[in-house]
Design a protein around this nucleic acid. Sequence first.
RNA 1: GCGCCCGUAGCUCAGCUGGAUAGAGCAGCGGACUUCUAAUCCGCAGGUCGCAGGUUCGAAUCCUGCCGGGCGCGCCA
Length: 682
Amino acid sequence: MNILATLRNRFGRALGALGVAESETPELLAMVLPSQDAKFGDYQANVAMPLGKRLGQPPREIAAELVRLADVADLCEPLEIAGPGFINLRLRDDWLAQQVTVASVDVERVGVAQTATPRTFVLDYSSPNVAKPMHVGHIRSTVIGDALYRILRFLGHRTISDNHLGDWGTQFGMIIYGYKHFVDRPALARKPVDELTRLYKLVNTLVEYHETANEKIPAVEKRIADGEQLLAKLRDAAMPADAKAAKQAAKRVRQLDGQLSELRSDLDELLGEVAAVEDDPPMRQLAVEHADIGQRVLLETALLHGGDPTNVELWRQFLPACLLEIETVYKRLGVSFDHTLGESFYQDRLRGVVKDLADKGLARESDGAICVFLDGYDVPMIVQKQDGAFLYATTDLATIQYRMREWHPDAILYVVDHRQSLHFDQLFTAARLWGYRDVELQHIAFGTVLGDDGKPFKTRSGTSVGLAGLLDEAVERAYAIVSQNDAARPEPLLSEEDRRHVAERIGIGAIKYADLAHNRTSDYVFSYDKMLAMTGNTATYMQYSYARVRSIFAKAGADAHSLERAGASPPPRVTSAPHGGEDAPARSNAILLSTPQERALAVALLQFSEALDRVVADYRPNHLTGYLFELATRYSDFFENCPVLRAESDELRMSRLLLCDLTARTLQQGLNLLGIEVVERM
RNA sequence: GCGCCCGUAGCUCAGCUGGAUAGAGCAGCGGACUUCUAAUCCGCAGGUCGCAGGUUCGAAUCCUGCCGGGCGCGCCA
């Protein structure tokens, strides 16, 4: 059941009867919306105001006409016109009761219909570099992508998830170099993943050391010197005469000052990095011995790309261990993919891509590189470097070509950091020029995860936070909270094993939910305390709400089983209005809406479908978290005001049990679509 | 310099293709546990939606300019 879609459908007909052109109706029907304030009813139609202008009639008159034409008497109370021409709709209690009763026996889909217009979506998310440990930056892509995948699939779309691994880049050159110079063979045989990680980190540290010492530090020093010079010049300059120019000059000085202090703190950080190596004698020794490590890593990478048998064999040998590592994280997150076609998969297609682009006149040589020049962009998209190597733009184009040929999608969604938006703009523009015009290409951009200080989330030492450690920490904190709360009960509910199990689900859920609940386009501040809070819009609160509902069934005992049976049966024939005429006794499995709280809960339950539509409209899972919070709030209100097991009659008791059951299943389904598990007790 | 994103309560954030009196949580104040999980709930207080114009029946939302912040800008991904 989708109330909004039903109402729009009815108003569409009314608009037709009013003589509105069919081409204009979709835009107008978008103005039929849920009310923001309950005193205006459940829904409102705001179409009369814009129509007033077009038809040259007072909006209130048009509203009155629409009220006459709209055939909604079966589901709405008599329509009301308010203000300049708002039409307020209040749903009939008997209709609501009937609809929610039907939803309550829908075991599979809690009343959400599948889309009438299924599309094929390819979703590209997570895409970590293998060989590097996954870090905090991979959470958002993985979690948002997985949620969108689950939601689209639930709505009946064809979905294909493809983890576009970085499995062919410089990080393998590093591992290969590390293997050739530093490998500890027994360790590699014993724990390959750990040893490869150690090699990667070691080589990476050495490469960075040289880069920092030889390039970054001098560059920053030069910028500081230039800045200081400019600042001195600005300060010496005579104050401009007119006020505006003086203000501008002052601002310039202020900005420059800020930039300089930022640069100085950058410099300190870089000097610290260098010192860390130099103060460690063995590392210092290695740094001296491997002075040209940066170049030699690139060489190893080039050899790999060129098909060098030794390096290709090493790559083959190392890849499974690296995959195992990330697979562990995915398993814990409950994320899986239909395909995992990494960059390496496309390597033998790249030459053909560049040739085809050149043949079609889209790419040409410039400064020794092959570039695609696009209107409206200052910089071209480079598809082949001077030295002949290909770039990620090339791989991405090859990937689009492959996906289009293989899966014929209607849309390809890339869940990737917003910093890559220029790349995707260019990629999509190029792809369309290349001939892929009938596919929706979307960069599902998201912001950065920040620490408490408002800067990108890092450890004290400045390295990025490992994803595995992050999950551990959340689960550990969840365990402490679970244990503390359970121990404080007169009679603890949970065994030690239960507590561990619950903590895992709460900890992982908290991280995912916090991420999904934020509007994806903005940065968000990562805080364990906030995400594990029991109040507010958190996974923990949602899981708690679920557990509270379920506890009623635990108390109800055998009733739960009979209810499940009732739920599994076909929809009941609703023979009576909820308030029940004497000659039509309410059936035992019909829902009655005897209080405002029950009614509000029923409306919320029926709006699940609308929430999912909103998510899909612009690929924002936070609309679903917002909905679940609203639902949980409504349930809480109901829980406080409507006794279930001690309801005044058997009919009411059964009705409320049905509402509870549907609430639990809707919460569970909603959380499941976000990749979050529930617990029966907590 | 050019481009993209952002600016909403003390803090962290919502605000659903422009709708009626801008909402949550935290923090603050005051209430509710012999009653289905109080890890909860209810009430109070808290706002020039960065600033200034414009578009219109109506603007936090759309347009322009300014102020403030983040990110990106040829051979990394």
